[in-house]
Design a protein around this nucleic acid. Structure first.
Length: 474
RNA sequence: GAUGGUAUAGCCAAGUGGUAAGGCAUGGGUCUGCAACACCCUGAUCGUCGGUUCGAAUCCGAUUACCAUCUCCA
């Protein structure tokens, strides 16, 4: 029984899918005019973790997330770089994939592009005009926000309390074309200097910002979707406007649950990190120095609705935890390779594993409470470490425990399985380890320690166990 | 002006009425030829003030600080 916090109602609600066993979710993706920053990554990681937990819970997840590849910022950035809009967006779409893959963010089931849905967008806008929800004004098309009942409910904004221009981003010319300042563009007439335009019943132009998500969400997931997600700052205006135009178009509830992730803050004053403030850190740069698994863990283990402070301390700590989880896995895996394992099952460890699974699900069922889930994972790791030193272990039960452990940690997005490349030639290391064992047996500790020190200098760490010496690369 | 969020040990953080989970770091111990790995032990009365209650970190009121949203930022 999963409960999720719904921004629309501001309460945790029992999660029920429209179709049994299937979760249809749409997560607003980035506008591709730059490398993604860690705020974009946080959002992607938050919803990837949610997706992975649904899958862990045996749901089939249809995860649709877009690239917004036509937008004023793209036009501006392309112009400055002296390349076409498409060259720019193609580059950063690829960069998004390159940056998210090391973070174990699963590719979306469908990754639609705004520019590939222009005809659907035009049809959609046309329908809004026909229904009286939108109007043309000098080549632009605007949505009559006041005509939509309960406009602003998602962000809990009263339309009459909106302070016009509070964000200081309003365009005067646009303001003059609107019937009402709260109206928003669903289609923008072409600017003379902008090459990227499409023909439409209202003349050449391009889609407004919000319309593409409505069109693509409905196209790929239906009139009513289970979950719609994105960053907190999208609640208003982006999602607010998506709701207005989508529900005006279909007459149906657009999404049953609205989930919003909190911001990443940076610096001593915990200021919000954002592109417009210019204080952002790109994942592209970060991955040069930071272990992607640690970054993933740090972001995934802060509850998705809480603000997340990006600090070096947090990264360092996350690195420790990743190491601990991988070590626990490796310790048991090494133990299970030994010949003296039992062939029968080990009920004691089986029972423990079942309890960990149950406790893990109980934590995650509560609006994806990763902090509590981590206490379970931590207990699980301890239990594995203890098991690795048991006198007798069961191969069957041990493998099952490892599989369950890896599955749980993978929900958080961390892979605990060793990633050693099969092509590596470790024969020299193996020979050194064997030589040291021989020296130890002969009680020639000076020689044994010398070998160990030499390997250490090469980044190879030795660990003695009752079942022999194992080694790993730092 | 309107609407939200956050405040718990050195740091991160759970907890929504019954005598404060967990992690990191610190210190101590066990294991080891020594080490490494691992395991065990070790810490806070919950921003401030007042109220309700047999009992509050948890409810109510006030207050302080920080952060955010209010038409193209995840």
């Amino acid at each position: 029984m999963i409960h999720v916090f719904n921004t629309m109602t501001r309460t945790k609600e029992l999660f029920k899918t429209i179709q049994p066993g299937i979760v249809n979710m749409y997560v607003c993706g980035p506008t591709v005019y730059n490398y993604i920053h860690i705020g974009n990554a946080r959002s992607a990681i938050a919803f990837d973790t949610i997706r992975r937990y649904f899958e862990y819970s045996d749901y089939q997840v249809n995860y649709v997330s877009n690239f917004t590849d036509v937008d004023d910022k793209i036009i501006k950035a392309a112009h400055e770089a002296g390349i076409t809009e498409q060259a720019l967006t193609t580059k950063f779409e690829q960069a998004f994939n390159d940056d998210t893959a090391p973070l174990n963010i699963k590719p979306a089931t469908v990754r639609p592009l705004a520019t590939e849905h222009i005809s659907e967008i035009i049809t959609f806008v046309d329908d809004l005009i026909a229904k009286g929800y939108a109007y043309e004004a000098d080549g632009d098309v605007y949505f009559r926000a006041r005509k939509f009942p309960d406009y602003g409910h998602l962000a809990h904004q009263n339309i009459d309390d909106l302070e016009v221009g509070a964000s200081e981003r309003l365009d005067d010319g646009e303001l003059a074309r609107k019937e009402d300042p709260v109206d928003f563009a669903v289609w923008k007439g072409a600017d003379p200097e902008v090459a990227i335009t499409w023909d439409s019943p209202w003349g050449p132009g391009r889609p407004g910002w919000h319309i593409e998500c409505s069109v693509m969400a409905i196209k790929y997931l239906g009139n009513t979707i289970d979950i719609h997600g994105g960053g907190q700052d999208l609640a208003f205006p982006h999602h607010t406007n998506e709701i207005a135009q989508s529900e005006a178009h279909t007459g149906k509830t657009f999404a049953n649950y609205w989930l919003h992730n909190g911001f990443v803050t940076v610096g001593d004053d915990n200021e919000k990190m954002s592109k417009s403030l210019g204080n952002f850190v790109t994942v592209h740069d970060l991955l040069q120095t930071v272990n992607p698994q640690a970054l993933r863990l740090m972001m995934a283990t802060t509850h998705y609705r809480r603000p997340l402070a990006y600090t070096q301390t947090a990264i360092t700590e996350a690195t420790q935890i990743v190491k601990r989880l991988q070590t626990a896995y490796t310790n048991v895996a090494f133990r299970l390779k030994q010949a003296d394992t039992m062939t029968t099952i080990d009920e004691a460890i089986d029972t423990q594993v079942a309890q960990f699974k149950s406790a893990f699900m109980q934590a995650m069922d509560d609006d994806f409470n990763v902090a509590n889930a981590m206490t379970v994972i931590n207990d699980f790791a301890t239990a594995l470490n203890v098991y690795a030193k048991a006198d007798h272990v069961s191969a069957v039960s041990g493998e099952q425990a490892l599989a369950e452990f890896a599955d749980q940690v993978m929900v958080i997005g961390v892979d605990v399985k060793p990633s050693g490349r099969a092509t590596d030639d470790n024969s020299w290391i193996e020979a050194q380890v064997a030589a040291r064992d021989a020296a130890k047996k002969a009680k020639d500790y000076a020689q044994a320690d010398a070998i160990r020190a030499e390997l250490k200098a090469q980044g190879i760490v030795l660990e003695d166990t009752a079942q022999g010496t194992r080694w790993k690369k730092e």
